[in-house]
Design a protein around this nucleic acid. Sequence first.
DNA 1: ATTAAAAATGCACTTTCGTTGCATTTGATA
DNA 2: TATCAAATGCAACGAAAGTGCATTTTTAAT
Lengths: 137, 137
Amino acid sequence: MNEIEKFLEDKKVRPTAMRILIYKFLAQKEVAVALTDIENAFAKADRTTLYRTLKTFEENGIVHQIDDGTGISKYALCEKDCNCEIEQDLHLHFHCSNCNETVCLTEHKIPHINLPEGYVAEDVNLVVKGICEKCSN
Amino acid sequence: MNEIEKFLEDKKVRPTAMRILIYKFLAQKEVAVALTDIENAFAKADRTTLYRTLKTFEENGIVHQIDDGTGISKYALCEKDCNCEIEQDLHLHFHCSNCNETVCLTEHKIPHINLPEGYVAEDVNLVVKGICEKCSN
DNA sequence: ATTAAAAATGCACTTTCGTTGCATTTGATA
DNA sequence: TATCAAATGCAACGAAAGTGCATTTTTAAT
């Protein structure tokens, strides 16, 4: 409880009640969540608030946004000490076409990529689509 | 002209006037295009027709759809003899955050990815975001 | 403690994109 | 030339992202 408040403050995000709840929700989820998922979990809160909370979290390095190819943005908590940097922090995401869930495979970092002359990489997104461990049995 | 008709027929796609035009448009573009781009180029045609043409092209291995992380689907002609298969055909895409264009780096195939036990890969999407060659000068 | 300022939240609304159903037209085939 | 299937055009819908503004809450200063 108090840890979360402290954590948010460290990240320069005001620890409002709503934000603490959203943080908790993200923390208990082991998969990436869409705005709609949070909306359903917090029926009382307005979508805009949730939307802006996620944006704030993203801007302050608390969550990373995941584009899993479904066209719907997903969000997941960043790892400890993550700066969302290529080579160091960025990891593989897996989207299951059966259960439709997206997971962070944080131990699978993104391989180094050689770009042609003149190209500058700022961000890399690697998504594998297929059948996840739960659904493949 | 006649080559295109033949090509489309080979791919089991009826070479209608509209489809030939769209094919030509894609062929002359060196970047991936969005539905909206084609819409603007062919003001006379209906969006639905363009949309369905792209779908038809995609289903018949003429174009591949690209998810570049902008949330807007892009399309580009497949390489010759492409079957859109992992390890063989799938390549890197680069999205420029300056000019907003997405290019196929077809010579950069997607590296082999080891997944955890139980995961089955069906498709892989690798997008690098940054500054492209044209914009970095 | 009170108040002023700033930030967060809620509400209404808009835009864009993807998508579908259905009527109409075009094109291939018998 | 008649017939049937495929392609096209039109209208509309739904989901999701995003914005402007009014209101409430929180912080900070007096």
